[in-house]
Amino acid sequence: MRLAADLKAFEARIGHQFSQPELLLRAVTHASISSSTRPDNQRLEFLGDRVLGLVMAEALLSADTAASEGQLAPRFNALVRKEACAEVAREVGLGDVLKLGRSEMLSGGRRKEALLGDAMEAVIAAVYQDGGFDAARALILRLWGPRIGAVEQDARDPKTSLQEWAQARAMPPPVYTEQGRTGPDHQPIFTVEVKLESGEAEIARAGSKRVAEQAAARALLARMETSDD
């Protein structure tokens, strides 16, 4: 009863009421608790990834009719990457309704980025199978809407931008150094420093080394651009 009530509340949060609730139940079932009578969400994840990609491609073409393929590709990648799916999953509380095996639950599965991203794609596929493409498109545009409007800025890779800034001033590429790693294996926190040849540096922390590098690069680039003004 508790699970059914939680799934009903989740339906309200995403704005889609399932006529086939078993599809949603499958979408939130992780492989760690699946069985022959309880299928997991991996096949739905495969489908949802493709539905998300098509909707995002359409949305980007409509949002900027003059954009070239070279401009559209990084925007598309920023919208469909696993991190973006996981962010949306957190916003709608998807982690709260996931069905996980005991070991996965004890290792913090409800907060894992890859697990949340995969489950979000599975939910998209469940909506697609339940209500058709129009329902899936409406769901995606509703949940990703603010990101589509801001995607040009999000797609600007801060590491690339910082390197271009340095090269324009005849500097070698910035150097990234992992300063430390803390926390349990299932939820590590990486500390990364980025440093320019001129000595300016910034430090950032994040749940993955790549995200920490990007955050450090973004902070240093913002500081250097401000000093240029």
Rank of each mutant, 00 (worst) to 15 (best):
R110A: 00
E11R: 05
T29V: 03
C85S: 13
K99A: 12
L106P: 05
A155V: 07
E113Q: 15
V51I: 15
A170N: 06
P188T: 00
E83M: 13
E197C: 06
E83H: 13
L141F: 09
T226C: 02
E87T: 12
R2P: 04
S107W: 04
L115A: 00
A4T: 10
K159Q: 14
R90H: 10
M1V: 01
Q214E: 14
E200Y: 12
F18H: 09
P74G: 10
R13L: 08
L221Q: 07
L60E: 09
R43K: 14
A206P: 09
G70L: 05
S227T: 07
K82W: 05
M120G: 08
E178G: 01
A222F: 10
Q20L: 09
A206Q: 13
Q129E: 13
F46M: 07
G48W: 07
D229N: 11
A219L: 13
L24Q: 05
A219Y: 10
L196H: 12
E58T: 06
G183Y: 09
A9R: 13
L221I: 12
L115G: 03
N41M: 00
R147A: 06
A212W: 08
A4H: 05
A206L: 06
G199Y: 10
M105L: 15
T37P: 04
K195L: 13
G117A: 05
